[in-house]
Design a protein around this nucleic acid. Structure first.
Length: 288
DNA sequence: AAAATTTGACCCAC
DNA sequence: GTGGGTCAAATTTT
């Protein structure tokens, strides 16, 4: 990933802000009813998402000039969502074997960690490949609820370094599944005793946050089990869910308000994160 | 028995 | 033609 610094970083921030402004302007038209019918709510939701993403990106650029930290790369091409659906016309299982469309572009993000992370979701391994010029095989996982809930989330995990052990996890798509194992989830944030932040309590429609593993909170995953051979790495309770976008007492925390937005078509994973993690753990966005 | 993993085959994008 | 993402039968684990 490239390091953004100096003018290029400033330019990136500027472009993001301009983009956000444009989206907000479009959103205004939608709200005023001057938008073409039929695009209404979904379009508005997309605009909201874009605006929030603009802020998010800008803040990341602003807060994170360094590229020495661990990785979180995000490239959003969500408008061309994953096309794993098979076009195959064959009907029998055997005929359908291997019949699929390879993913071209989808939203994805990477994370590197010293151990394969337990992100709280239920993953089913469906493949393993030796990758050219790499020492370790790449493991492919899909959401366990791919079929029962049509959850399209997948991830790839690959060991990239021996000593110290380093694993790169690349997530593709968002979880749309409901995790039924942890019906009651309450978020708390230890460094925010003032009460200025609101804790969110989720019912079984929303999985639990596991802050360290899911910087972009596709949804809040409950911790269920660790996978692969290594134990999950230690975590720090860094997620803060606030009722408003604010720089609060912990100066490096930036939080965005989200409530059940995922169920209204806005995926909070696109807009919610803790900026501190980017300082410590992640690089700025990666554009392809 | 059901769920999960392994692994070779298959096929598409490049 | 090749690399890599996915499928699915076989096998293992729970």
């Amino acid at each position: 990933m490239e390091n953004l610094s100096g003018n290029s970083r400033r330019k990136a921030i500027e472009e993001e802000l301009v983009r956000g402004r444009d989206c907000a302007e479009q959103l205004r038209h939608v709200i005023n009813g001057s938008c073409v019918d039929g695009l209404g709510t979904p379009f508005a939701e997309q605009l909201v998402k874009d605006v929030l993403m603009s802020f998010t990106n800008s803040l990341v650029f602003f807060n994170n000039p360094s590229s020495e930290s661990h990785d979180l790369h995000v490239w959003d091409s969500s408008k061309s969502e994953d096309s794993q659906e098979s076009n195959c016309k064959s009907s029998t299982l055997k005929e359908r074997r291997g019949c699929y469309k390879r993913r071209r572009t989808t939203q994805s993000w990477e994370k590197e960690s010293e151990a394969p992370v337990d992100d709280g979701y239920h993953w089913r391994k469906y493949g393993q490949k030796e990758i050219l010029n790499t020492k370790y095989p790449r493991n492919y996982y899909r959401c366990t609820h791919k079929y029962d809930q049509s959850c399209q989330a997948t991830k790839q995990v690959q060991r990239v370094q021996e000593d110290p052990p380093l694993y790169r996890t690349t997530y593709y798509g968002h979880h749309t599944c409901k995790n039924l194992l942890n019906p009651e989830i309450i978020l708390e944030h230890p460094i925010s005793p003032s009460g200025s932040s609101k804790f969110l309590s989720f019912d079984n429609t929303f999985p639990t946050p596991s802050k360290e593993d899911f910087p972009f909170l596709s949804s809040f995953p409950p911790s269920v089990k660790s996978e692969e051979e290594a134990p999950p790495s230690a975590s720090s309770n860094d997620y803060l869910i606030s009722s408003e976008l604010t720089f609060d007492n912990s100066p490096r925390h930036v939080t965005l308000s989200t409530l059940d937005s995922e169920y209204k078509g806005i995926n909070i994973s696109d807009v919610l994160y803790d900026s501190a993690q980017f300082d410590d753990v992640f690089e700025p966005f990666h554009f392809r």
